[in-house]
Design a protein around this nucleic acid. Structure first.
Lengths: 133, 133
DNA sequence: ATAAAATGATATCATGTTAGTATCATATTG
DNA sequence: CAATATGATACTAACATGATATCATTTTAT
């Protein structure tokens, strides 16, 4: 039960890598070399980051990507949700046809509260928090 | 990203069902009817509950299962771990060959702390807490 | 004895998700 | 116009989860 999947992980690393270079353009090729991750996989991730407004892209020789927001306003939670969908920890508890007391079920309440905690914690950390190391 | 999977869910329901019947023996067939879940799937779950010491089993006509511990001492966390393995939320962050500052990485720290919270919350609820509804 | 009803062990199949690859189209620069 | 980027999209592979099928063994009742 992993909290973030590999594509999210790569996305975050790529964003952090770009953040270190300030406003410079960074190509997928360069990120692949720096992070040692599979090229096509990273490319698809970069494209998704583009579609989701995290980066701007520039085609052609000398092209590449750059952040479209300040690193301090890019929340890890939002990156994760772009790749994994919303955090829904209760996903697999059965519906009320099987569990009639779903509404007041102590376990469901507990998992709901854990979910709130996860979301709030993941919302409390940004790409810029990852640059210190 | 579900916190508990379906087999864990069924296992918990089965334990709760048995808990309501106190010390009576309960067959898989009966549980299947009560919970409306697939028979063979539940049987495999019951067998696992047996191997993991949550229930005792009795073969033959009139046989079945009963809890081997008081419901108030059966923690949901332990049931979940029997079926899903330990809660390891950091599972998919890459090793240090890719991420050199893994030790002090803010994201890793954050996820570790979330994991502690999850484990502690799942350890604070038992089968007997589910019987109220 | 033996049939019925239960669990034990195990192997298999089906489906969905994640991880990763391949290809072609399009844009930009020199 | 060639080289080097990204955009879009389709596909494959591996793994995890959910579910099923079978046969062996044990127990009880007749």
């Amino acid at each position: 039960m992993k909290l973030i999947t590999r594509n999210t992980d790569y996305a975050i690393r790529a964003l952090a890598y770009m953040a270190r270079k300030e406003d410079e353009l960074t190509s997928a090729t360069e990120i692949v070399k720096a992070l040692k991750v599979p090229k096509q996989f990273l490319r698809s991730i970069m494209q998704k980051l583009g579609r989701n407004g995290f980066v701007k892209s520039y085609k052609g020789i000398g092209g590449g990507f750059k952040l479209s927001k300040r690193p301090s306003s890019v929340y890890i939670k939002d990156v994760a949700e772009a790749f994994q969908g919303a955090f829904r920890l209760n996903e697999c508890l059965l519906g009320k046809s099987v569990c009639p007391n779903r509404k007041c079920c102590a376990l469901k309440k507990k998992i709901d509260s854990i979910e709130k905690h996860v979301v709030s914690e993941m919302s409390s950390i940004t790409v810029s928090d990852l640059l210190k190391g």
